[in-house]
Design a binder for these strands. Structure first.
Lengths: 258, 258
DNA sequence: GCAAAAGTGTTCTCCTTACACCCATGT
DNA sequence: ACATGGGTGTAAGGAGAACACTTTTGC
């Protein structure tokens, strides 16, 4: 166990990347779908391939901050949820140099994501229809997708795709899009209400061509209580940022099978 | 997003540490308890404080390999389970220098751990009765403990503390020690058998002063099937090593409350 | 036979699921 | 009125918890 840190030539390079999720209608089917913004690599290695937003870790910047920063640089948005995913460090994952990437995953609000910046070098892709990406980024995204879909079933994070207030139908649409299966509205309502993670505002939405739905808001006090031993981190620009992944007490996953 | 990795002076140092768990009788109560081996720091900073085994990451070594190596150097054992826990990189976690630590957690067999090496600079501690440790290592262990206790409830990993064959009473004892609560033997049996993760060998253990219990073995084919998108990594010396944390299909958590 | 742990059977309760049905609004 | 989704009622099925009871060994 050497006490002196290794020099530049004999050390791995440390990078931070982020898998960013937003919910938008699918281009052809129109159904709500998970989208991910990627950036085009402008240099070698892997020039012109699409890749996760990220960069080298500055010595004086926190890991989460670096993730939140690259997220902002890519989407122009602040994340509503940001959590460390995994650290990838295989010897051969980047040709020529040993790179260790601390990868985060994030959720941004769907409404905002609609007007997210898109340019020659930044493009949004449907999460399940990705082209071959740079490095091991396909594998990383597969894992992030799995984590999102798993976590949504046991933790109250779905609201991170929505605004401050929302109808239960909107919340249910998030679950259906993420889990890719229909959910029974009746059971969903009961499960969510029983979980206590959600509070009725008393207001309703008018203008629909049917019975006006009630508006709900997430109970922030509950969110704080379920973080486990390591509390949520805070990042300058961001809102709610999760520390080491910790289970929440109750989250709806009700409804029909398949 | 700079393309060139930063040099030594403006880069964080990359370290790998491991939280190692074994099950041994508590020194006073005699009950099965979680133990953790720690090493005494022989240099500054934090000289003479106890710390997690670990070291700087060599450029040419895989992250898991580095974790498995430090584990072997500390306990003299090969891990039966090894999984990445989290990456800690707070600016102020190590005085004087920016250190980013990729932390793994491991389980070693209890029987072997009995005769694990202990010396002036390596000592085993009861996991819930730790002194103040170096750096943020108390916090890291708290998180590792939480992860172990959470994961044991939904993934079939408890057998990693045991040998190739075991009785259901031994397996139950593992659960009781980790979860710190009594479990009903009758319900435990049914839940485990229904999970399909365990197979009877047909043999029994003689010599007890009661009815001879049957011996079981874990079904390895099931273990492989539940890894999710990223399969288990393999490490030269180790046995079963888990890739990015993925849920298992079924694991017992039956029995009495509290 | 007795103690002790292995192993089986049975009931109760709670949570999830399925689905019938009523409610409130726009057209 | 009627279409549409919001919202309520209710019953069936399954998993977990509690606990009585039977089996098989050592002493």
């Amino acid at each position: 166990m050497p006490e002196r840190a290794p020099g530049a030539t004999d050390a791995a390079a440390l990078a931070v990347s982020t898998v960013i999720f937003a919910l938008r209608p699918h281009e052809t089917t129109g159904r709500m779908t998970l989208w991910i913004p990627l950036v085009r690599r402008t240099r070698n290695p892997q020039k012109d391939l699409w890749a996760l937003p990220g960069g080298w870790l500055p010595v004086d910047e926190e890991l989460v901050s670096a993730a939140a920063r690259t997220l902002g640089e890519t989407t122009g948005l602040a994340p509503t949820y940001l959590e460390q995913l995994y650290t990838f460090g295989e010897l051969e994952r980047s040709p020529g140099r040993r790179v260790v990437s601390v990868v985060y995953w994030a959720m941004v609000q769907s409404a905002e994501a609609e007007r997210a910046s898109e340019s020659e070098n930044v493009r949004w892709f449907v999460a399940d229809e990705l082209p071959p990406l740079a490095f091991d980024h396909n594998r990383i995204i597969d894992y992030a997708l799995w984590r999102l879909r798993t976590k949504v079933e046991y933790a109250a994070i779905a609201h991170a795709f929505l605004g401050a207030t929302f109808t239960l139908a909107e919340l249910r649409e998030v679950y259906e899009a993420v889990l890719q299966r229909p959910i029974d509205p009746a059971n969903f309502r009961r499960t969510v209400e029983a979980s206590g993670t959600v509070v009725a505002t008393g207001e309703v939405v008018a203008g629909t061509r049917h019975r006006p739905p009630r508006l709900y808001r997430y109970d922030a006090s509950i969110d704080l209580a379920d973080r486990g031993p390591l509390g949520p981190e805070s990042v300058p620009g961001g809102q709610s940022v999760a520390g080491p992944s910790v289970s929440a007490p109750s989250v709806p996953s009700t409804g029909e099978q398949r």
